[in-house]
Amino acid sequence: MAARPPLPAALRRLAGWTKTAAADAGGRVALGAAGPDGVLGGGIVRAALHEIHAERTADIATAAGFAVALALRAAHPSTPDAGARRPILWVRQDFLDVETGGIHPPGLAELGLDPGRVLLVRARDAGGVLRAAAEGARCTALAAVLIQPWGAPRTLDLTATRRLSLAAATSGVPVLLLRAAAEPAPSAAATRWTVRAEPSRALDANAPGYPVFEVRLVRHRGGVAEQQWRLEWDRDRGCFHDRTGLDRSGHAGLAPLSRPVVPLPADRSGSPRGGEAAGFRRAG
């Protein structure tokens, strides 16, 4: 009898996933962009489950990029209790490798995440994904847990998400549930985002620019209304920039980023002359 925790504590623990009480325990993960951070009261709750949906199946890579960026934000040195060198656990279902390609570590490095920090777990089915994720979400020594099942498996129901949410609240590790080819269903996640690729701001010579995500906050446990932002990921500073005001061509308000331009002679051995032949951009 003596070993049982006092009732108020037990109640508080039970209430952890319904109230925002857990929010204050683990702090918040700021996105670094003024728009969403202002609306969310300083960022998303760290010790919680967040759901990220790819709007269409073709947006999986974009949604994965957004999730990686969020995980990086969670481990950003500017946030308290960051643990910048902690590993990130990424649990993936095997089928994704066929459908959308495997994770390419140099691509992680290009987003700012050292691939050596990623612990990749490959599970055969959604059940395996959830079991491994539950195990990982309980481990306090991780920077973030990324869970990527395929489709809408029956095992991923309200109970499963509640379990993950509780584990995250206990360990203080952000758990990001990355979903594709799935209709939004009831879940215990603190926020739900829908992510879509958006044209980037062109660099010189009409080259594709930094990754731009069209993110829509569909659901928020704290009651924030649905809202939409266009966020650009800045790997060098490790933060998002709010580009919501820009039109799709990316030219409103801001000029294209200026940068040194090198003409490229046919034999590729010329020295930089600057600006005469703006048809090429230094690459690689």
Binding site: H104, G107, G116
Partner: peptide
């Protein structure tokens, strides 16, 4: 080591690769 990303450049390598 991993090849460091070029500063002030967008990602030069994709996040997901087909094999």
């Amino acid at each position: 080591g991993w090849r460091p990303a070029e500063p002030d450049e967008p990602p030069a390598r994709p996040l997901q690769l087909f094999d």
